[in-house]
Design a protein around this nucleic acid. Sequence first.
RNA 1: GGAGAGGUGGCAGAGCGGUUGAAUGCACUGGUCUUGAAAACCAGCAAGGGUUAAUAGCCCUUCGUGGGUUCAAAUCCCACCCUCUCCGCCA
Length: 426
Amino acid sequence: MLDPKLLRQDLDNVVTQLAARGFTFDRERYEALEQARKTQQVATQDMQAARKTSSKKIGQAKAKGEDVAPLLAEVESLGDQLKQAEQGLSELLAELHDLLAGMPNIPHESVPAGLDEADNVEIKRWGEIPTFEFEPRDHVDLGEQIGGLDFAAGAKLAGSRFAVMSGGIARLHRALAQFMLDVHTQEHGYQETIVPLLVNKKALYGTTQLPKFADDLFHLQGELEYSLIPTAEVPLTNLLQDSIVEASELPVKMTAHSNCFRSEAGSYGRDTRGMIRQHQFEKVELVWAVHPDESWDALETLTRHAEVILEKLELPYRRMALCAGDMGFAATKTFDLEVWLPGQSAYREISSCSNTEAFQARRMQARWRNPATGKPELLHTLNGSGLAVGRTLVAVMENYQRENGEITVPEVLRPYMQNLESVALN
RNA sequence: GGAGAGGUGGCAGAGCGGUUGAAUGCACUGGUCUUGAAAACCAGCAAGGGUUAAUAGCCCUUCGUGGGUUCAAAUCCCACCCUCUCCGCCA
């Protein structure tokens, strides 16, 4: 959520900056609503003040044993008027709030211009693209060849966009998650966290999946209104919901390995082959909550933490700065990491690291106490994948494949696999 | 699932229709004292929002959440949520 004060004070700028990411703001509606709100709020609060004063007088008079009848007559009519005014106000506030809640974050000045992924800017490349003395296969073919990656089984049990892993592939997948967690907790200083995979609406609102993106989620039926998390960013970031963190406790750095569930509504026909886009996948998530002055350094550090995983795995990647129009709703700036997939001869997204500044923190009232003023102020929150485990498995399979279909186990994973040197036929 | 208890400020914990945004303690901040620190003493210290040039004043809201009664609700009524204890069931 943007700062309502910013809209009141600098609407022109907000409108143009949001236009940069392709968002059209209904300015006239906003201005009319805001005008009405102001009038209504001042009037309502005046009436509340009047009622308060009268009630106090009545209390005092009664205590002295005086006759309160005239005072009662005075406030008699106030009740209905006030009720009406309060209702009118709350309707206006709700409408304004809905309007605000639908507005995306303002892109940082360093974000490249552009409306779609064609305008994303490559920041750097790392690693050598591997060459093969044979025609490299994609992970689907590899999985078929050595077994352990079964999409038909996934479809039988659940439907499309599900897979069953088994044997060496499943083990490799588990090793990847363990490895990532160990690096982040032991080398990068994150707090390991295990979080609920089902969350409530308030949490989803806090990280901005709601109200706008309800269709991207799986919602449980039944009297309890749970949804499956699309990313551990939701529970991790919401740990700070309605709290005030001491300055000495910053930065807060948390990591969680979790399953993630996405409906993938609107992506019919995209990435239908293989593990790239599944309804259920695993991810190791990184979340920071920081002093507002430090979020830009934090974004760089966080992104590096994700890159380190790829480098340790010796997977070639590039870092992209997303253009304004390609960024997620809550982000002021996003770096995507794209890993090289020989099966597609292309770089594919494997991590997305964003600074949301106070956008999420404002919604969830995540604050820190500024020792200089003694007052609570909004934190800045960041999140990034470190990394998407399923996609990392794909990258390992395709980059480490041998002609016979076996997968060489990357050096850093071997301690997690009893020093197994390759994954062969299941 | 059954029975009971409870949800109040950063934490603990009073209040149970009327100058209560809320006693008290701890924590925190400033001061006195001290070579310095601690202790002791004194003072300050909730959050959100509105108005405004203002982080100045003034005002509103908030005692789990949502409704209701009343001139007036932390206090009374209803519903829901959560926590704890016991029993049952169960990874």
